[in-house]
């Protein structure tokens, strides 16, 4: 079984590497199973090509498999052979069932959290001077209008948040307002959930369309208060 041992070890080692080693390399991520499958397929194809390069290696490679399948002179492996012959059709049946049975899972939800804003809301700068008074006033507006959902600690855990899906944004999280420009927040606060494009799933968002209730100046002050309170800075292009 020498000629077969190496390919089997190689396949197992490849799988273990892809599944457990590669995701732990800094900057990497867990591989989707479809990609692991593709890599294993390529590995198997490589092995077959390599092993069938010469007549000699071909016989050494296929010979043991052929003997195993036909059951000639394999002695103690006979039981394993029957096991494989029974298991293979069962596996094929199981896979077929799995791919044709109807799923109980609800439709997949893919929602873009920060979709692109309309053109008129890119690159606007905050017209309100960044003074301690204005920041304080912004925090006061935030406490009155925003904190019930986004939280007194700017963490998205306000008392009204629990039932909402998607959950209110956590401004202390570095992937929310810290990677957005002030003009983006101005758009999101002004137009609210109903202002999102289709990839943002506007029908699910509870965010009010504040332009019908608050003047622009208050919104700009709220933005200042949010960044200050969450200890974040707006993204800039400089």
């Amino acid at each position: 079984m020498g000629a077969l041992g190496k390919p089997i070890i190689l396949m197992v080692a490849m799988y273990l590497f892809l599944k457990f080693v590669l995701p732990n390399i800094p900057g990497s991520a867990p591989l989707p199973s479809s990609l692991i499958f593709l890599y294993l397929l390529l590995t198997a194809a490589g092995i077959i090509i390599f092993e069938t390069l010469s007549g000699e290696s071909k016989d050494a490679f296929w010979g043991p498999m052929q003997r195993f399948l036909t059951g000639e002179n394999i002695g103690g492996l006979q039981a394993l052979r029957y096991g494989v012959l029974v298991l293979f059709p069962l596996l094929v049946g199981w896979q077929t069932y799995g791919s044709t049975a109807s799923s109980d899972a609800p439709p997949a939800e893919s929602r873009t959290i920060h979709p692109a804003p309309p053109g008129e809301y890119t690159g606007l700068s905050n017209p309100v001077p960044k003074t301690p008074e204005n920041i304080m006033q912004g925090k006061g507006f935030y406490a009155a209008f925003c904190s019930p959902c986004h939280g007194g600690n700017f963490d998205g855990k306000g008392p009204a948040a629990r039932g909402y899906n998607p959950p209110p944004a956590n401004f202390a999280d570095p992937t929310t307002i810290a990677m957005l420009q002030e003009s983006y927040l101005f758009w999101r606060i002004k137009k609210g959930g109903v202002g999102l494009p289709i990839e943002g799933a506007p029908w699910k968002s509870a965010m009010p369309r504040w332009e019908v209730e608050l003047p622009d100046e208050w919104i700009w002050k709220i933005i200042m208060g949010e960044y200050d309170g969450a200890h974040q800075s707006p993204r800039t292009w400089e």
């Binding site: 396949m11 199973s33 692991i36 294993l40 198997a44 077959i48 498999m65 596996l91 094929v92 896979q95």
Partner: peptide
């Protein structure tokens, strides 16, 4: 056969 076994094995592992 060899290819089939590899495919099935990978499908089982991957799924």
């Amino acid at each position: 056969l060899r290819g089939g076994v590899a495919v099935i094995a990978a499908m089982v592992i991957g799924s």
